[in-house]
């Protein structure tokens, strides 16, 4: 029997990368899955890929009306949510503090923080007793690194939301936790760099990352399965780090 047999899961940012790998893992473990993304083309592709037991919905989590429409659809189709994976997130353009614009800053916060907040708030009427809510933070929220101040701080805010939501929702029997991925191979590098640059970046990662590789999205999905399932029934308000050790030690002295 699957570890998520019979559960209804909603995954925002489920049309690519970590969210899509998690949708596959949830399906394999017996859940029914709703994946959400902004780009209709990716929504359609995800639907084709995931098949019968999945529903793919186009919605922007930064838009409250679209969130309402999303949950109306979930209510009609499934009546409830057992697992909410609020995973939609964007890195934004890498900019040093002096080059940051208020538009670029707001864009990151609109999806990562405000989007996550209202993704959870608007799901509340549908969340079943015993439901599990999982937020995606990032190892970036543990570090000081140049050029990612908006992104890193937005994820620190999400980490804090996981704690506040956990305190508020445990009274309804809903658990809230976070996953903090380190560098994950979701095609982000291939998307941002030329093929020659990709080689250089990959070489650099091998020398700087303790495990000498990025995470595969399936490895982050494994963490999501654990937090989604009743196996983590006494885990609350926690942030599970899956970063290959980057944030916890240096591999050279």
């Amino acid at each position: 029997m699957g570890r998520l047999q019979g559960k209804v899961a909603v995954i925002t940012g489920g049309t690519s990368g970590i969210g899509l790998a998690t949708a596959k893992a949830f399906l394999r473990e017996g859940a029914r899955v709703v994946v959400v993304g902004r780009d209709q083309k990716k929504v359609d592709q995800a639907k084709d890929l995931l098949g019968e037991r999945a529903v793919a919905v186009r919605a922007d989590v930064a838009n409250l009306d679209e969130l309402d429409a999303l949950y109306a659809r979930v209510r009609d189709e499934f009546q409830r949510i057992d697992v909410l994976f609020a995973n939609a997130g964007i890195p934004g353009a890498p900019l040093p503090v002096d080059k940051m614009t208020s538009e670029a800053f707001d864009a990151v916060y609109a999806t990562n923080v405000r989007g996550t907040f209202f993704t959870v708030q608007k799901a509340l009427p549908l969340l079943a007793t015993g439901a599990s809510v999982i937020l995606t933070t990032s190892i970036a929220n543990d570090f000081g690194r140049a050029n990612v101040s908006a992104y890193a701080s937005s994820k620190a805010a999400v980490r804090s939301l996981a704690q506040s939501f956990a305190a508020e929702l445990i009274g309804r029997g809903v658990r809230v936790n976070a996953i903090s991925p380190g560098g994950t191979d979701t095609g982000i590098i291939a998307k941002r760099f030329s093929p020659e640059q990709v080689k250089v970046v990959m070489e650099r990662l091998k020398t700087t990352l303790p495990l000498k590789r990025l995470a595969q999205p399936e490895e982050i999905a494994n963490v999501a399965v654990f937090l989604a399932s009743d196996e983590s029934s006494y885990v609350l308000g926690a942030e599970l780090v899956a970063d290959g050790g980057v944030s916890r030690f240096t591999s050279v002295f």
């Binding site: 495990l211 595969q216 494994n222 885990v235 899956a242 970063d243 290959g244 916890r248 030690f249």
Partner: peptide, 16 residues
Amino acid sequence: FDATFTTGAELPVDGG
């Protein structure tokens, strides 16, 4: 067995 990208970390099982 499952947390293949997690090392050096701490997992609290403490009801929050």
